[in-house]
Design a binder for these strands. Structure first.
Length: 588
RNA sequence: GGGGGUGUAGUUCAGUUGGUUAGAACGCUUGCCUGUCACGCAAGAGGCCGCGAGUUCGAGUCUCGUCACUCCCGCCA
């Protein structure tokens, strides 16, 4: 018995053809005389008919068939009688009259029905992932992911990129995320780290002269999980020599456009907009703005700095920021809704959420009385206040004000149903700061990573005003989610040493941790830069999923365990002994 | 590390003020049925109410602890 077709191929043009189909039993409908089976494979479903008139013995054998049995069917394609056609099925015009039945495999009753409309709990789905993957939605996501990776490989190959593998067993580097460590048996007491990204290797490949590199590569970060974060995830990683940021962005846009075309048959705009980091923070409070809706933030610090409302005045005088969002037409928000929004911003450490409802003849608000007529007029003008509006204020340190209001903006967008999931709004965010300052550790930190080049005009600020340096980094944001980011790198070992020095890494430590990079940079390094996209996040948006787990075949739980295999698990004593590792519980 | 949500039949859920015999739907089993396609009809099986303490005459229900899954903050590009 050799398969001749898949379960999605047969049409009324195949009538009278003898075919062999193989697949899983989706449904069995036993009418006593005649038995129908929906046979399912990766591509579709075809109805099989067992009729004792065709074969008494095959019909008899078909009575023992149950859901998810794996069958091979030989039979003749037959037109369904006129009103028995099923317009909801691709193959609904025909059916197979079974002449031979082979039961390859019996199946236990599955833990949940293999259908999209039955939503089993996530832990059951993860435990029986191989069943879950049979369901149409998840199956489609995985197939779409394949379409995307094919598009990526074809596109990058056509642009002259070379796919080069880089090591998984590599060296731990400071900065960035916590590493996953792998013990070395041959070098007892030493550990490899799994890569957080192939960052240094791809730079070394540029120095080696492979001027266009790419890899669809797994990366590992031992940090806490989220709906859009897994401990191992996949990057579309690229690096190019002899290019500037504009050329990289152009190629990246072409790549994204190709993916959308191949997976969704969707034409994206020929170019994506760009805004600077400063503008993104100013207008949206966040460095990954969702451009699908308005509700922009508005700085009112200058208007309220002398207001009778002490909170606003004090914050402004102490270097803080007072910003507002005008939620047009939402003056009907109830006390309860406002309380919920206040709780919402408190998560982002905002101490409060001030509000003013604009009525026809007056402002309704606990704080309205603190503003003079001039201040009211100025606010009205700045915020375009009209009767029926409600305006929300956050006053705090700039970081908190921006983040709390930026998140409030997203929340209002969701609540007011301003966000469509069939719209794709991209934006590049450029000119990130090179460093920020870690208050607890009292030192500068790279915002991107330590190999990011500063804007040439800012280089001299390294010794005078590091926080004012802008970098040649760029993120690509889609619908408020960062889907990729990259930068032009430092290709000068002296400048690299200055940057490391600024991060508090002295020459000796730099030599120990990044000596090989500095040495390479001093050995003929071309100007180079690159970008990496989060394939999982990109697929999450393409597939309209809320969780990254739904675009990964075998994802991990929030505690980074695999419910299917039971990983991680205890190592055998003999394994630990070989590695010279002794396990003890903290506190013992 | 912190905050929120969930946990009852194979699955998804309901379960009132703490009250005696814990329900529904789907699935499953058996029987009937020759045109269904989420087939239909009839009968039936199926429960450590996550786990452990406690309060109480009595706990699915209240209290404390604990575990798992999940969302978020911190953390992480």
């Amino acid at each position: 018995m050799k398969r001749t077709h898949t379960c999605s191929q047969l049409r009324d043009t195949h009538i009278d053809r003898e075919v062999v189909l193989m697949g899983w039993v989706q449904h069995r409908r036993d009418h006593g005389g005649v038995i129908f089976i929906d046979l399912r494979d990766k591509d579709g479903i075809t109805q099989i008919v067992f009729n004792p008139v065709i074969s008494e013995s095959v019909h008899g054998k078909a009575q023992e068939i149950r859901s998810e049995y794996v069958l091979g069917i030989r039979g003749k394609v037959s037109a369904r009688p006129g009103d028995m056609r099923n317009p909801h099925m691709e193959t609904g015009a025909i059916e197979i009259l079974a002449e031979e039945l082979k039961i390859f495999s019996r199946a236990k009753t599955p833990a949940f029905l293999i259908e999209d409309r039955v939503e089993a709990s996530e832990s059951i789905r993860l435990q029986y992932r191989y069943l879950d993957l049979r369901r149409p939605q998840l199956k489609k996501n995985i197939l779409d992911r394949h379409k995307a990776t094919m598009a990526i490989r074809n596109y990058l190959d056509s642009k002259g990129f070379i796919d080069i593998e880089t090591p998984f067993l590599t060296k731990s580097t400071p900065e960035g995320a916590r590493d996953y460590l792998v013990p070395s048996r041959v070098n007892q007491g030493d550990f490899y780290a799994l890569p957080q990204s192939p960052q240094l290797f791809k730079q070394l490949l540029m120095i080696a002269g492979f001027d266009r590199y790419y890899q669809i590569v797994r990366c590992f970060r031992d940090e806490d999980l989220r709906a859009d974060r897994q401990p191992e995830f996949t990057q579309i990683d690229m690096e190019l020599s002899f290019v500037n940021e504009h050329e990289i962005m152009e190629i990246a846009e072409g790549l994204i456009r190709k993916i959308f075309k191949q997976v969704l048959n969707y034409e994206l705009a020929p170019t994506f907009p760009q805004i600077t980091y400063d503008e993104a923070i100013d207008r949206f409070g966040i460095d990954r703005p969702d451009l699908r809706f308005g509700l922009e933030l508005c700085n009112v610090s200058d208007i309220v700095k002398d207001a009778g409302f002490k909170v606003f005045a004090d914050v402004t005088k102490n270097g803080g920021l007072v910003k507002a969002i005008n939620a047009k037409g939402c003056a009907s928000f109830s006390r309860k809704q406002i309380d919920e929004l206040t709780d919402f911003v408190s998560v982002y450490r905002a101490k409060g959420l001030a509000w003013i409802k604009i009525k026809e003849d007056q402002w309704q608000s606990p704080i309205a009385k603190f503003f003079t007529d001039d201040e009211q007029k100025a606010l009205s003008k700045r915020l375009d206040l009209e009767p029926g509006d409600i305006v929300f204020f956050v006053a705090d340190q700039p970081k908190i004000t921006n983040e709390a209001l930026g998140q409030l903006r997203n929340e209002l967008g969701r609540r007011l149903e301003l966000i469509r999931d069939d719209v794709f709004e991209f934006t590049w965010v450029t000119e990130f700061p090179l460093f920020d300052y870690d208050e607890t550790e009292k030192r500068y930190q790279s915002l991107h990573h330590p190999f990011t080049a500063p804007l040439e005009s800012d280089i001299d600020k390294i010794s005078t005003a590091p926080l004012e340096i802008k970098s040649r980094a760029y993120d690509l944001v889609l619908n408020g989610i960062e889907i990729g980011g990259g930068s032009i790198r430092i290709h000068d070992s002296a400048l690299q040493e200055r940057v490391l020095n600024c991060l508090g890494i002295d020459a000796e430590e730099a030599q120990e941790k990044f000596g090989f990079l500095l040495e390479a940079l001093a050995s003929g390094a071309p100007p180079h830069g690159g970008i990496a996209f989060g394939l999982d996040r990109l697929m999450m948006i393409l597939c309209k999923e809320d969780s990254i787990r739904n675009v990964i075949a075998f994802p991990k739980t929030q505690k980074a365990t695999c419910l299917l295999t039971g990983a991680p698990s205890k190592a055998a004593p003999s394994q630990l002994q070989e590695l010279a590792i002794k396990v003890s519980k903290i506190g013992e």
